[in-house]
Design a binder for these strands. Structure first.
Lengths: 144, 144
DNA sequence: TTACTTGCAAATGATTTGCTCTAAA
DNA sequence: TTTAGAGCAAATCATTTGCAAGTAA
């Protein structure tokens, strides 16, 4: 399930980074949650295993992991950036009541990029699609 | 072309806001540009016409105009929020080389929301779709 | 007249950075 | 052994807020 340590080391090395204990733990924390946490939440989790880690290291680590293609950054919407241990392209939906972010099980709509390319003249390299709505829990509490 | 002053006043009044000179000028600046500027750029522009305006007022004004539905906030991606004088729903494309943001002339894909709703169980209220790519200018300079 | 708004400056929150020491390769 | 990385604290950047004075309705 979890990517081999050597695989991770290799991806880091390609960008000139080393594999450190801190980077390993951040990655494990991110892969071990369904939530899409921000730096501070990750910091609290990592501290449980490494009490001396600093928030600055968390930020630096997240940028390194992102640069190495090991994690994904989801910074649209809220005031702080959120991270995702999944790197395969997929969409998210945010609950406008409780702020929860969920993965959406839909394949990427590549045809959207073709249409954008045709209309703009840009060489389109990617897209981001974010849905907003009310989650089942919040929806039922609205009716109560 | 430009919405009537009374129309603007009405939209503000619906939310309990007054129409002030500052709000008028910010709105005019935003409607008078094709770019999708951030608060600081708007501040510089407004200062040309109102030298005593403060940056705090710009921020407050942008939030008021957004709340009244007179402008749109585009805060995904870059470190500072960008604003758009158009409120009709449309998509954007960002050049990953020069940072330019352009409007895309495509109708909203409402069927995407239906598919997300079917898959997640959320009551979907909206979506945001952002494209990334290389603009024609940057693309041709790459080949030089 | 009376709230709502402004300008100003200080405060806040998220993220980055400089520096010295530590540890990965 | 060499050089990237960690921890700590200070710095930075974008945005918000408290307050006294100004102004739209």
């Amino acid at each position: 399930m979890i990517e081999q340590e050597e695989e991770i080391r290799k991806k880091l090395a390609e960008k000139g980074y080393r594999l450190t204990k801190q980077r390993q733990v951040v990655l494990e924390v991110l892969r071990g949650t369904q939530s899409h946490p921000n730096a501070d939440w990750i910091y609290q989790e990592v501290r449980k295993r490494m009490p001396n880690v600093s928030l600055g290291t968390i930020y630096r680590t997240l940028n390194v992991l992102k640069d190495a293609g090991l994690i994904q950054e989801l910074n649209y919407g809220s005031s702080s950036r959120r991270y995702d241990g999944k790197v395969t392209s997929h969409y998210h939906i945010t609950c406008i009541k409780c702020g929860r972010v969920m993965d959406i099980d839909l394949p990427p709509f590549v045809e959207l990029e073709h249409r954008a390319e045709a209309v703009t003249g840009f060489k389109v390299t990617g897209h981001r699609l974010e849905f907003y709505g009310i989650c089942p829990e919040c929806y039922s509490s609205l009716k109560r």
